[in-house]
Measured scan of single mutants.
Amino acid sequence: SELMNSSKLIRMLEEDGWRLVRVTGSAHHFKHPKKPGLVTVPHPKKDLPIGTVKSIQKSAGL
């Protein structure tokens, strides 16, 4: 199965306009000026399962 580095996923979010608002432990929480909701990324993780990545991307509207 495909894995993604959390840094790469965070870069994709930031390029889309998401900004880090809070860190709780290894959970990084992002908000967007125009899009609704809060997106949480486990970080640092070298090997996020593709299912997790897809669900984060979906929440972020990517």
Rank of each mutant, 00 (worst) to 15 (best):
S1G: 13
E2Y: 06
L3I: 12
L3D: 11
M4H: 09
N5K: 06
N5T: 12
S6Y: 04
S6M: 03
S6A: 06
S7Y: 15
S7R: 07
S7T: 13
S7M: 11
K8Q: 14
K8Y: 14
L9P: 00
I10L: 04
R11Y: 08
R11V: 10
M12R: 08
L13I: 08
L13Q: 00
L13G: 00
E14D: 05
E14L: 10
E14H: 10
E15S: 08
E15A: 11
G17S: 03
G17C: 06
G17N: 05
W18H: 00
W18F: 03
R19M: 14
R19T: 11
L20W: 03
L20D: 02
L20R: 10
V21E: 09
V21N: 05
T24M: 09
G25N: 13
S26M: 12
S26R: 10
S26C: 12
S26Q: 13
A27Y: 15
A27H: 15
A27P: 01
H28K: 06
H28P: 01
H29K: 10
H29C: 10
H29D: 11
F30G: 01
F30Y: 10
F30E: 00
K31T: 13
H32E: 00
H32K: 01
H32F: 01
H32Q: 00
H32M: 00
H32L: 00
P33K: 08
P33H: 09
K34N: 13
K35T: 03
K35R: 05
P36M: 08
P36S: 13
P36L: 07
G37W: 04
G37S: 05
G37L: 04
V41P: 00
V41Q: 00
V41I: 06
P42F: 04
P42M: 06
H43E: 02
H43T: 03
H43M: 03
P44G: 05
K45I: 08
K46N: 15
K46F: 15
D47R: 08
D47K: 12
L48I: 13
P49S: 13
P49A: 11
I50E: 15
I50Q: 10
I50L: 14
G51L: 13
G51V: 10
V53P: 01
V53K: 02
V53W: 06
V53Q: 05
K54F: 03
K54L: 06
K54E: 15
K54N: 07
S55E: 14
I56N: 02
Q57D: 02
Q57E: 08
K58F: 06
S59I: 13
A60P: 02
A60E: 02
G61A: 04
G61R: 06
L62F: 03
L62K: 04
